[in-house]
Amino acid sequence: MALQLDYTMDDTTFRHFLNGHCVVMHSHHYLALVTRLVEELGEIDGTRVLTDVVEESMREIFDDYIAKHGLTSPQERGAVGKEYYSALGLGKLQVSGDGNRGEVRLLRSHLDEGWVRKWGTHDRPVNHFTRGFIAAMFGAAFNAPVGSFRVTEEASIAAGAPEGKFVVVRNRAEGGAA
């Protein structure tokens, strides 16, 4: 599936839109610093706030695209998230799995490569942003409510691995078969 990308601009405000959703450019410095900020906010589980926000926000965009294009199969629906990831400059994903579990390889990564450029390698995985993104991608693919999938980062480019690896498991409480 080739994701259709419709870039528009409001001539009055100059805000930019991708497929009807307002988007704005930032750099790896921004995402790296925001990631470090949420890690420093342990008392409010800042990393959870970030993953939840990314999942909710991306899910709205995926569901909107899926509805507008009448996509029905999990493969087509899941491909929306994978292709959005690259279109937004976040990197390159390779995805496998079903409605109960999955695995995502992160072949290239805006955040990880940006983190290494900025601060060098880290002692643990940092890509909480992509964990939320993948949860949204699986939720959209299998038409499951937000919060249905738990995503863990098991290998990290920022921590020195040649590629990232994320394991996806459907939460039991949501009613999945995992």
Binding site: R15, L18, H21, C22, V23, V24, M25, H26, S27, H28, H29, Y30, L31, S57, M58, I61, Y85, S86, A87, L88, G89, L90, G91, K92, L93, L107, R108, H110, E113, G114, R117
Partner: peptide, 16 residues
């Protein structure tokens, strides 16, 4: 590669 190398940085486009 799903990356946007511009302006001496890696750029992203994020939803507002």
């Amino acid at each position: 590669n799903g990356l946007i190398p511009e302006y001496e940085v890696l750029v992203n486009l994020l939803p507002v």
